Amino acid sequence: MKYRKKPVVIEAFRFKIDDVMPDWFNEKRITNEIITHDDGTCTIRTLEGVMKADYGDYIIRGVNGECYPCKPDIFDKTYDKVEE
Rank of each mutant, 00 (worst) to 15 (best):
D38Y: 04
F75I: 13
K71V: 10
Y3M: 08
G56K: 00
A12E: 01
K6R: 11
K52Y: 09
T36Q: 12
K5D: 02
K16W: 06
I17M: 08
D38T: 05
I74P: 03
K28V: 07
I35T: 14
E83Y: 14
T36A: 05
M21R: 08
D76S: 14
G65C: 02
T78V: 10
G62K: 07
I59G: 06
D19K: 04
F25A: 05
R45K: 12
P72S: 01
C70I: 13
I44A: 04
T31L: 04
V8I: 14
T31C: 08
T78P: 08
D19F: 03
E83M: 13
E84A: 14
F75Y: 02
M51I: 05
M21C: 06
E48M: 10
M21A: 14
K16N: 15
D19V: 02
T46N: 01
E66M: 00
N26Y: 12
D73R: 15
G56M: 00
Y68N: 06
K2I: 08
F75A: 15
W24T: 09
K5Y: 03
A53C: 11
F15K: 00
E11W: 03
K6D: 10
C67S: 13
K6L: 13
C70E: 13
D23G: 07
M21K: 08
D73F: 15
D57T: 02
G56R: 00
M21D: 15
I10A: 00
G49M: 02
Y3E: 09
E33D: 13
R29Y: 03
R61T: 07
D38H: 06
F15V: 09
V82E: 11
Y68K: 00
K52R: 13
W24V: 09
Y58E: 01
C70Y: 10
I74S: 13
Y58P: 03
C67T: 14
C67W: 08
D73P: 12
D38M: 04
D76Y: 12
K28F: 05
I34A: 06
E27V: 04
G49D: 00
T41N: 11
L47C: 06
P22E: 13
P22I: 12
D19R: 06
C70A: 12
F15N: 09
K2L: 08
T46Y: 00
K71M: 08
F15P: 03
C42I: 07
V50L: 07
H37M: 06
D38I: 04
C42A: 14
K16R: 11
V20K: 09
I35Q: 13
G56N: 01
V20S: 07
R4W: 02
T31H: 03
I35M: 14
I10M: 07
K6H: 10
M51W: 06
F75S: 07
R14P: 01
Y79R: 01
E11V: 04
H37W: 12
M1F: 01
D80W: 12
M21S: 11
L47S: 12
P69W: 10
K2F: 04
R61S: 14
D54E: 12
D57G: 01
R61K: 15
D76Q: 13
D57F: 08
K81E: 10
Y3G: 09
T78Y: 02
P69I: 00
R4Y: 11
E33L: 11
V50Y: 03
E66N: 10
F13I: 04
T31G: 05
K2Q: 11
E33N: 09
